[in-house]
Every structure is written in structure tokens, then in C-alpha cells.
Design a protein around this nucleic acid. Structure first.
Lengths: 150, 150
DNA sequence: CTGGGCCTTGCCACGATGGCAAGGTCAAGG
DNA sequence: CCTTGACCTTGCCATCGTGGCAAGGCCCAG
């Protein structure tokens, strides 16, 4: 099966399949004499797995761990569960952070009369420190942000 | 005022101040004879405004629009409010998407006994199409993702 | 055999941010 | 006055996951 067909069948773009191969997330695909990559059902299955995990907001790195567990017959389901639940925690935290932003914005908006006069608590409130959020920076463990960008 | 002091006073890193200047979000800073950038109170105020907007999840691009409104004495507060409420909608949508991920994951986790046996609905469920989410891609209108990465 | 549609690789871009390096500047202390 | 260290300057590279484009090779149908 061609990379194009594999992409079609798995829902992962050809571009990303090559990328995943390049970064070692998936093994190097078999090649036909022509140099074309060749995929079988097992490959498709793996790609679909990756797609599902991506859609659930797992990082490619985390998916690497999941794939290892997937192919490990002797894995403990507890390990998988721990990984998943840890991710749920991270998602919940993000949700909370977004919730805080929403609350602040709605609060500011509520106090803005929203007519054609220039006074606006939103504008004023932004420069004040009302935004809170102590500004921490962390080593990017979220990923699949795009699923969240709408 | 030095860039370092401006960073300290505004909560925006020196690096980002230079970046904002480079991309035209803020006007080019005045320079001392030494070549050092020089900031006054108005600059700090603007930087603090940017910082606040960033913390509320606005894109740098959106902040550009906000800044324009900010410095426009004749602006209608309705414009600002519309921008803010539109952003709130986007945030709510992201929250909902994350919520869907959480629901799916918790559902899978609930059905995973989580012991040392290898069977795991989480692993199995990922390859199936349970993840839903019709895979749309859009032109990046969120930004300040880092605030959400925790 | 030719055309169009695949495939190959490789490089550039995004957004917002950090990091590093090489060199200039400034202020405090000897 | 000179040294030292902290700061500034610019410029380039990396991140993460994805898309796009280009030049060249392959494959199938007409």
C-alpha cells in the first residue's frame, strides 16, 4: 500500500507519516523497488492508533510511550491507565486555566457598556494586573494543540 | 530605562520586548547614544497591557488590534467588547474540546481494570475510531498556548 | 509514448519563546 | 585609571506539529 493510500486509510496525512518515521515514532517503512514506501495492515493499525491518541491530546512523545506499551504483550494495564489518567489531569488543568481567562474576560466585558463611547473597562483592565496567572513556563508537555485551536 | 528594567517592570521578558518591536507590535524604542533601548512609563504601560492580554489568551495578532483600539481615542467600546467576547467564544470552544477528550479518556480508563494484566481498553480503544473529533485544521487563531501548557 | 497523478527528498514557514555566542557599554571598586 | 562583572546589542538555532512548494522519479491509462 502506498503512503497516499495509507494516509487515506489511517487519517494521518502522508506528510505526517513521513515525519513520524523520521523522528522514530514508527519504524522505517518497507520500500518497493521503486523506492516507494509500502504499508501493510499492521502499519495502518498503528497509524490509526497514533491518530486516535493525537486526537485525545497526547504529545507525540507520550504516544511513543503508548506505542511501546501497545506492542509490549507483557505490559501491565495499570501502566497504561496511569499514563492516561495523568494526561487527564493535565487536560483538566488546562481547562481550569481557560476557565480563569473566560471568567476574567466576562467580568471585564460585563462592566463594559459596549456602546460607541470610548470608555472601556476591558482596555483599562488589561493594563492593570488583573490577568493574574503567575506566568510560569514549562517544557512543553501538552501537544496536539491544534485540536484545541478550533 | 533599560530593556532589562522595562522587562522587570512590565513582566515581559527582554527577549519578547525585542521580538514585539521587530514584528511591529510596538513602535521602535528610542535609543541612547550607546545604542541601548530606552523606555519610558508609557512604554511600560503598553508592555503591561500586552502582558495582560497575552495572559488572557489573546494572540499577538489580536493584541495588535487591541492596541490599535487602545490608542484610538475615538474608538467605540463596542468594538473592544466584540473582540473580547469573540475571544471568549473561542476559549469556550477549546474548553469543550478538552472536555470531550477528558470524557473519552475517563470512559476508557473506567473500563480498564488497571492491574498487571495486559488487557487494556484504553490501548484498544485508541486504535478504534472512538476519538471522534472530525479532524479540522484551522489558521491558528488561538495563541498563548503556553499559558495552557502549565 | 505521453500526460497527469502519484511518489521521493529537502527546505521554508508558522507562533511565541528560550538559548547561546560574540562583541560593546556601563558602573562600581581597587 | 583600569579591571571586572553585569548588562546591552545583534544574529542565529531550537522547539512542536503541521502545511506548502519545488525538482525530480515512477506508474498507469489512454
Amino acid at each position: 500500500m502506498n503512503i497516499g493510500q495509507a494516509a487515506e486509510a489511517s487519517g494521518v496525512s502522508a506528510k505526517m507519516i513521513r515525519y513520524y518515521e523520521q523522528t522514530g515514532l514508527i519504524p522505517k517503512a518497507a520500500r518497493l523497488e521503486s523506492g516507494y514506501r509500502d504499508y501493510d495492515e499492521a502499519d495502518i493499525h498503528r497509524l490509526r492508533f497514533i491518530r486516535g491518541a493525537r486526537d485525545l491530546g497526547f504529545t507525540v512523545e507520550q504516544i511513543g510511550a503508548l506505542l511501546a506499551l501497545w506492542s509490549d504483550r507483557g505490559r501491565a494495564s495499570a501502566d497504561v491507565k496511569a499514563l492516561a489518567l495523568g494526561h487527564v489531569d493535565a487536560l483538566k488543568q488546562k481547562q481550569a486555566e481557560i476557565g480563569a481567562m473566560i471568567a476574567t474576560l466576562e467580568n471585564l466585558a460585563k462592566r463594559c457598556h459596549g456602546d460607541d463611547r470610548p470608555d472601556c473597562p476591558i482596555i483599562d483592565g488589561l493594563a492593570a494586573d488583573e490577568a493574574g496567572a503567575p506566568r510560569r513556563r514549562a517544557p512543553r508537555r501538552f501537544g496536539k494543540v491544534d485540536a484545541l485551536r478550533a
